[in-house]
């Protein structure tokens, strides 16, 4: 096509139009170029043409730009375990659709699609907008051609590069959970979390808990219980000692199975002790607690990518930011008003 263009002294796009007999070109020009092409023996590549036809047929509205949603193959396990993740993608997809973008998930896998291959795909597809979704802590770097991309991360604060992050607001979630339990009339409210979760989320649960306790009288402040990996599976004894020693009347936790462990110590919820979850899922309809707003996390991530695209802000930010999405309280039978038992 380049050869034809040079020979006919026109641009290659003109050649393309002429060979398709496009009416935008004067008839004389079309014929002149067609003759040159015939003389030089130019033929359109049928494979390429077939590919183009196929591509256009599967994209009825031409030119819908896409935003890539990159998933960590290793994190697939937690996708099946944590109810939040599919909701994040759905929120992102919906937000993209409303703005006229398509959302395309890509699963990064060292064997199938690695970062280098993904880079080629994004470049070939002309995709600049990228959402890096939750990555497991064992992946520490993600090498893509960042100067070309408008990108944000969901959680994954441990992961290089330092992009803008969108995440659930665990500080607010914990503060809200504690405040609501106090409003319901509980006086000795304790927090149970794991050292692993606190490491991954920058001590977010304890930070929220401590600042909210700072405004309480000394008598209402309960030291949090942090579980090690080793006692994560059977924390009943530790839990029982802590509940006893701290005279606890209500527990808040990001771990929903803590409710089960409490009952395994012989205490009944809510008769002996109230419980509120800090990450309610649809599978726990009876629990009171805080619902994390996973769909809004996905939506905000896409909105920020589109804002970067509009402002042509590519590459790594000068200083990174974190955007926190708040959760909301839901009443449940595991935490009725405290006076019901007096």
């Amino acid at each position: 096509m380049h050869d034809v263009a040079r020979e006919a002294r026109v641009h290659q796009t003109t050649v393309s139009l002429a060979l398709r007999n496009h009416p935008r070109l004067p008839l004389a020009t079309r014929q002149r170029i067609q003759k040159v092409a015939a003389r030089l023996g130019y033929r359109p590549d049928p494979m390429l043409a077939a590919f183009n036809f196929h591509r256009l047929a599967s994209h009825p509205v031409k030119g819908t730009p896409a935003i890539a949603f990159i998933l960590d193959a290793d994190a697939r396990r937690c996708f099946s375990q944590r109810a939040g993740h599919p909701v994040v993608i759905e929120g992102a997809r919906q937000a993209a659709k409303e703005r006229g973008y398509g959302l395309e998930p890509f699963v990064l896998d060292s064997e199938e699609i690695g970062p280098r291959r993904l880079d080629q795909i994004l470049l070939a597809r002309g995709i600049a907008g990228v959402v890096v979704s939750t990555f497991e802590t064992k992946t520490t770097r993600l090498e893509l051609d960042w100067p070309r991309c408008c990108a944000v991360k969901i959680e994954s604060r441990h992961l290089w590069p330092p992009l803008d992050v969108i995440t659930n607001d665990q500080h607010q979630v914990t503060r809200l959970g504690l405040r609501r339990m106090l409003d319901l009339g509980y006086r000795r409210v304790g927090l149970v979390s794991t050292r692993e979760a606190e490491r991954r989320l920058g001590d977010a649960f304890r930070t929220g808990f401590l600042v909210e306790q700072a405004s309480l009288p000394e008598s209402a402040r309960v030291p949090p219980l942090l579980l090690d990996d080793s006692d994560r599976k059977h924390p009943e004894r530790l839990l029982s000692q802590w509940l006893e020693k701290q005279r606890i009347d209500a527990v808040v936790s990001n771990l929903n199975d803590v409710a089960r462990f409490i009952e395994a110590t012989g205490r009944r919820i809510p008769m002996d002790l109230a419980f509120a979850s800090l990450d309610l899922t649809p599978e726990t309809p009876n629990l009171a607690g805080v619902v994390q707003n996973h769909a809004l996390v996905g939506r905000r991530a896409v909105e920020q990518v589109i804002a970067l695209l509009h402002a042509h802000e590519r590459g790594l930010p000068e200083v990174p930011s974190v955007t926190f999405v708040p959760g909301f309280w839901r009443d449940g039978s595991s935490a009725p008003p405290a006076e019901a038992f007096e």
């Binding site: 809004l296 200083v319 990174p320 930011s321 974190v322 955007t323 926190f324 909301f328």
Partner: peptide
């Protein structure tokens, strides 16, 4: 907004 989201910019 029912769920106002707040963005925080890092320091060095």
């Amino acid at each position: 907004s029912a769920f106002p989201t707040h963005t925080y910019v890092a320091g060095l």
